[in-house]
Design a protein around this nucleic acid. Structure first.
Lengths: 245, 245
DNA sequence: CGAGACATTGAGTAGGTTCAAAGACCGTGG
DNA sequence: CCACGGTCTTTGAACCTACTCAATGTCTCG
């Protein structure tokens, strides 16, 4: 597994909060201007390249972080190497444990990633001081739980084709949501899949060969088209949703 | 699906908090005596029989509840009837949505169940007034998220035999934990599976026939023995853990 | 241009499903 | 108390989806 470069780590420079997805849709949305100014003080920025390990299963978590940009793959690995991706974290999501406990997951950057990291004790203090923040964290955790359970349905009960369709649909929906492209509900969506075929397989509980074949299937049915190896166009979300179960 | 009897509903009578699992290990553990006295006031008790629907997908949740006794099956159903159980809730667990949003799950009693129910607004006020309580709720939600992700590994990557072994292991561990049977780590455990074969299948992403066959397998390997149709004895947890992956 | 990683495609196989039938258990009522 | 009906469970045989193994193709980056 790629550990190509050491994760960079530099401090400050966060006048960027204004345009940040975490501020607009995520955790920091629960903060007033003053509180935001305060959380900036304890935050520091880290950047990663595709393939970098951000967290290593069972090791002490060094921080709690919000994702500023990029995509992070969260996974668990069985003793014999079988792997299951348990989450794909994008822009306004959070990463790591709140209370400093070791996180039982591996987290790997699948694109260039920028994190906004908070040291545990300082962040815990923020949580205690600002109930809105803790409330927001609770809500986000509940949403994550819902997604995890949706994925359980996918893994337990859906066919290979439905799984691939579901993944593309999920990403398309997310994209539409954070971009606020609320044009007519059913216009074409172009989306980038930041994952290799192998990783898609580990996310969907399939082998990569099966993923290939099912992508071809969906193309032949005109439910999607490939504009690049990892870029797809979805002509109709509702048609895709049909195929996703 | 069984809707055999109307759920009963009576009020008060909660001097039972002292011996309650929710008090000892769950939410109420975060409260002082005084605060407990207060939460009692807003609580009311509901009882259900096996097969009763407690929550119906997408309907407004009538309450937030802690489980006093019994087992509740949480599931999602696909348009064509395929079902996936996404959680099995036992004694100190909680049920329903905190903020009154509709819960996207079906909840069904699989044994006799007693719930301790809190109306939304009153409970939300408790949460706002007692940060410890909210903290506890957050921690429990994180634990649930971890379990859900463990289940994703099971559904995505484990064989039928490993799945059945994992389920029994999980229940045995839970049982040992709440009963505080900390005798030598590896003594025999007797456990009741409150689920029919069909429900086990829906939990493990298998058909009930496969569940049957795998139970037989495990018996033949002496990893478990059946003492009743739904009661099993696990001679060695560590041996079972081996088989569970 | 070549090497390596990633993706695609094909053929054969296996684990789990489906379909079918028989057996065990439980509560009910004669 | 036993017989009956329904539900749940067990077992068998055929089938199918997704996996495995293997070869070929394509992209990227030095």
């Amino acid at each position: 597994m790629g550990r190509r470069s050491m994760p960079g780590c530099d401090t400050t420079d966060l006048g960027r909060c204004e345009s940040c997805a975490v501020r607009r849709f995520g955790l920091c949305n629960a903060l007033t201007r003053d509180e935001l100014r305060q959380i900036r003080q304890i935050a520091n920025r880290r950047v990663y390249k595709p393939g970098d390990q951000i967290l290593i299963g069972e090791e002490e978590t060094p921080f709690f972080a919000a994702i500023y940009s990029g995509a992070v793959k969260l996974s668990k690995i069985l003793f014999d190497g079988r792997q299951q991706v348990v989450g794909l974290l994008l822009a306004p999501d959070c990463l790591g444990r709140v209370f400093g406990k070791p996180s039982p997951y591996f987290a790997e950057a699948t694109t260039d990633v920028e994190l906004c990291c908070f040291p545990h004790t300082a962040f815990q203090k923020m949580l205690d001081d600002y109930p809105e923040l803790k409330q927001r964290l609770l809500e986000q955790t509940i949403d994550e739980l819902d997604s995890a359970r949706d994925w359980m349905v996918l893994l337990g009960r859906k066919s290979a084709e439905e799984r691939v369709a579901s993944l593309l649909l999920m990403l398309a929906m997310r994209l539409r949501h954070t971009r606020y492209d609320a044009r007519g509900t059913d216009c074409p969506v172009v989306l980038d899949l930041y994952l290799k075929r192998h990783e898609i397989g580990d996310y969907l509980g399939l082998t990569y060969e099966t993923v290939c074949r099912q992508i071809r299937n969906l193309c032949e049915k005109n439910l999607i088209s490939q504009s690049g190896r990892r870029q797809f166009t979805v002509p109709s979300l509702s048609a895709l949703a049909q195929a996703a179960g």
